[in-house]
Design a protein around this nucleic acid. Structure first.
Lengths: 188, 188
DNA sequence: ACCTGAACACCGTTCAAGT
DNA sequence: ACCTGAACACCGTTCAAGT
């Protein structure tokens, strides 16, 4: 059976998806997990720490990276699909996306570690695409940061309605990721 | 003398900068504005509506665009400085940045209008840079969205510490904006 | 070690009333 | 039209106590 701690994180994630961070009340989290409204304090320092655990679990999720870097001509496609997976996850669970990349005052080591692992998978995929001559040369970490910035920024703008959702200028986050990769392909 | 409504927005902006959205309590907003803790309800539908007014004022601010598009060889530099101004504003006032591009359930017409105006200034600058052959061809609205997505995403990642703040891969939001514009320049 | 119930301070919102 | 003071429901957090 799932530990109380895990059930608390489950409940918090569910409430987060349903109504944003404000809907994640410790009372409701406890109720969903079958404990009292302040049992969470035995597992987390407070609400912020509970939300940090939710974010860390999201970063550790295998939905998007993991199947990442492939060598040879498929490298560019692999990178492209990786970013599309990232976009799909963020658009499907906007509250998790906002939370995971929100500002953290607590320097959770769990969170930092998960972030570093997720990033290194992306850097590998970028390095493979560079080796396949599908991306410009240069520090792979820096090129990876550029690719991630586009995907991340496009999603955030789309979620807040700042991406001209209609008209001829309409571009989805996926479109913008593709545009960047195409431009970078031609820039080398 | 500033209207009560303006003083309420002033107070809310100040509290937002100092401690994030949670620090913007209607009681403290009222106190700073010299009115009672529920006087704000005579000017705004509620806390969310007050924060929407703060965001709308930020979008209408002339800090960043306005001095935008220049014709001829200076067009690329003008666009670059526009984006650097955007980055500087966002890094200096992270709470305003997060709020302005947060998720709005209230479809404030004031907010939508300000967003459209800000975006059109950027599109003009992109069009001028394209005419100067400093950017690839294509729908200027779409290229503008790409540029904005990079700047926006880079800032958000930097603020949340997801941008590998140290080591050889270190890149500031300004660096990533420059990288993109350089790559786009070589891609045409 | 893990959990509970009562209690406290604080906040958003509503309402009746004042000028 | 604009503002006030009291009141209500709700929430994060703390504490003394239970097994």
């Amino acid at each position: 059976m799932r530990s109380t701690r895990d059930r608390l994180i489950d409940a918090a994630t569910h409430l987060l998806d349903a109504g944003g961070p404000a809907a994640v009340t410790l009372r409701e989290v406890g109720r969903l997990a079958g404990v009292s409204h302040n049992a969470p304090y035995k597992h987390f320092a407070g609400k912020e720490d509970l939300l940090a655990a939710v974010a860390a679990r999201q970063l550790g999720r295998q939905d998007l990276p993991t199947d990442g870097a492939r060598a040879g001509p498929a490298a560019e496609d692999a990178l492209r699909q990786m970013m599309h997976s990232y976009v799909r996850w963020a658009m499907r669970y906007p509250a998790r996306f906002k939370l995971t990349f929100g500002s953290w005052s607590t320097d959770s080591a769990e969170l930092a570690g998960a972030a570093t692992a997720a990033r290194s998978t992306l850097v590998e995929a970028v390095g493979a695409a560079q080796a396949a001559e599908a991306l410009p040369e240069g520090d792979p970490e820096r090129v990876a940061a550029l690719v991630l910035a586009v995907a991340h920024g496009a999603v955030d703008l789309a979620l807040s309605g700042h991406l001209s959702a209609t008209g001829k200028g309409h571009a989805s986050p996926d479109d913008l990721v593709d545009d960047l990769l195409d431009h970078l392909h031609h820039a080398r």
